[in-house]
Simulated scan of single mutants.
Amino acid sequence: MPRQSMTYQFDLFSAPHRGKTAATPQWQELPEETRQALTALIVRLFVDHASDASASQQKEVGHDA
């Protein structure tokens, strides 16, 4: 008989009425360390994305010249 896993991965795409996935924790329930790490990662994602968009626009402008 296969062993059942005790950990669950969050499934962002499943129907909410399915009971097999773990509930997404509220932000306030997360440990402070985790909130700080996630905030830093999200900020980095935004900054990197903005930098890439800016570089792409500069390339396009330079390409037209």
Rank of each mutant, 00 (worst) to 15 (best):
A22E: 12
D48Q: 12
I42G: 00
P31S: 09
A65V: 06
P31T: 08
A23F: 01
G62F: 00
S5Q: 14
I42N: 06
G62I: 00
V43W: 07
Q28C: 04
Q57E: 11
S14E: 08
F46K: 06
Q36P: 02
Q58C: 05
F13S: 03
H63E: 13
S14C: 14
P2Y: 01
Q36Y: 07
P2D: 04
M1P: 09
A15N: 13
M1Q: 06
F13K: 04
A65R: 10
A23E: 12
S5Y: 10
S14R: 02
L45M: 09
H17S: 09
T21G: 07
Q36D: 14
Q9C: 02
P25N: 00
E33R: 15
L41A: 11
A53I: 04
A40G: 05
E29N: 09
T24S: 07
D48F: 01
L41N: 14
Q26S: 05
A55K: 04
T24G: 01
V47E: 11
V47R: 03
A37W: 12
E29A: 09
P25V: 00
Q58I: 13
E32N: 11
W27Q: 00
R18C: 11
D64K: 04
A23G: 01
R3L: 10
K59R: 14
A22H: 03
Q9G: 06
Q26E: 14
Q57H: 02
Q4F: 08
F46R: 09
S14A: 05
Q26N: 10
P2L: 08
T7V: 14
T21M: 06
A55V: 05
Y8V: 08
D48N: 14
A15S: 11
P25F: 00
L12D: 02
A53Q: 10
G19R: 04
A50S: 01
T21C: 12
Q26I: 02
L41S: 11
F10C: 06
S56Q: 14
F10K: 01
A22M: 02
M6D: 12
S51M: 13
A37E: 15
A23P: 09
S56M: 07
A50F: 07
R18A: 06
G62L: 05
Q28S: 13
A40T: 03
S56V: 02
E29L: 00
T34A: 15
S51T: 11
D48S: 10
L12F: 11
H63R: 09
H63Y: 03
V43N: 06
V47F: 03
G62N: 10
R44G: 15
Q28P: 04
H17I: 00
W27H: 02
R3M: 09
Q26M: 07
L38M: 12
H17F: 01
M1H: 04
D52F: 08
D48M: 08
T7P: 04
Q4E: 13
A15D: 15
E33T: 15
Q26V: 09
E60M: 10
S54R: 11
E29P: 00
P2N: 03
R3Y: 12
L45R: 11
L41H: 13
L45H: 14
A40P: 02
F10T: 09
W27D: 06
S54Q: 13
E29K: 01
E32C: 10
E32F: 12
A22T: 11
